[in-house]
């Protein structure tokens, strides 16, 4: 759905471009927040973590701005067909990106609670997992900017690897806690970090699904989802 033809009303194109620019900026900030939060966690860098927490306000402000602009465009331009779908997708995507920003902030907040002197073996795994999640967020937003359904589909496929990471980290941390009861508090925090990363991956998938809908008008086929520790919980209890 490359936009070849411009609208007869040029101001409409200007509004759409501004909307895309804002979403792109917001996505970039959320991705950056995740990378910085994980770096702060790995290095025990508290000032960097504080920066991430502070930076979340800018992400929230961008969400508000996109919502305002989308509502205004719907009211004034009465968009149709792919334009309308893009507005709806934009509204949903920014609320998802805002959640991603919140998870990054949540990870950053836990940095102050960790003892930087102690090393926990799950952290390198978490760092690899977060690199993949950051890539997925990046690609999901790129697929929105480029109207690229192929890229969007690949994001949803790759999210399965994020789920695999999560399962693996869960097991690693449980084992670690059993062996090192003194590290239970920190390990529990890291479990939440892993869960946050897993949710962020799901949100990247949500973005990809919205892109697919905006471009094609169809819903993406239900993806195959990896089994998670909590999936088996009901049976075991």
């Amino acid at each position: 759905m490359a936009i070849i033809n411009e609208h007869t009303v040029k101001a409409f194109d200007a509004d759409l471009n501004r909307l895309r620019g804002l979403i792109s900026e917001m996505g970039g900030r959320a991705e950056q927040a995740l990378i910085q939060a994980m770096s702060a966690l790995a290095n025990g860098d508290r000032p960097l973590a504080a920066e991430v927490v502070e930076g979340d306000k800018a992400i929230d402000a961008l969400e508000t701005e996109v919502e305002r602009l989308a509502v205004q465009t719907i009211a004034l331009r009465a968009p149709m067909a792919d334009d309308l779908r893009e507005m709806i997708a934009a509204l949903k995507i920014v609320s998802v990106v805002e959640r991603i920003g919140d998870y990054a902030k949540n990870i950053a907040k836990r940095v102050a609670l960790m003892d930087p002197a102690r090393s926990i073996e799950a952290i390198p795994l978490l760092t690899s997992m977060s690199s993949l999640v950051a890539e997925l967020i990046h690609d999901a937003l790129d697929s929105f900017a480029a109207r690229d359904t192929e890229l969007a589909l690949r994001v949803t496929v790759r999210d399965k690897t994020v789920d695999d990471f999560y399962n693996s980290i869960f097991r690693t941390l449980v084992t670690f806690m059993m062996e090192n009861p003194r590290h239970i508090t920190e390990s529990a925090h890291l479990l939440f970090v892993a869960k946050n990363l897993e949710r962020m991956g799901d949100h990247a998938t949500n973005i990809a699904e919205m892109v697919y809908y905006a471009v094609t008008g169809e819903r993406m086929e239900e993806r195959e989802r990896g089994e998670q520790p909590e999936d088996g919980a009901a049976e075991q209890e």
Binding site: N5, H7, T8, F12, R77, A81, G217
Partner: peptide, 19 residues
């Protein structure tokens, strides 16, 4: 037709990109 037209010409017309 108004949410997901199948033809490009329809889409261009209803989204105001005609001509």
């Amino acid at each position: 037709i108004f949410t997901n037209p199948k033809q490009d010409r329809t889409k261009d017309y209803i989204t105001g990109r005609y001509g």
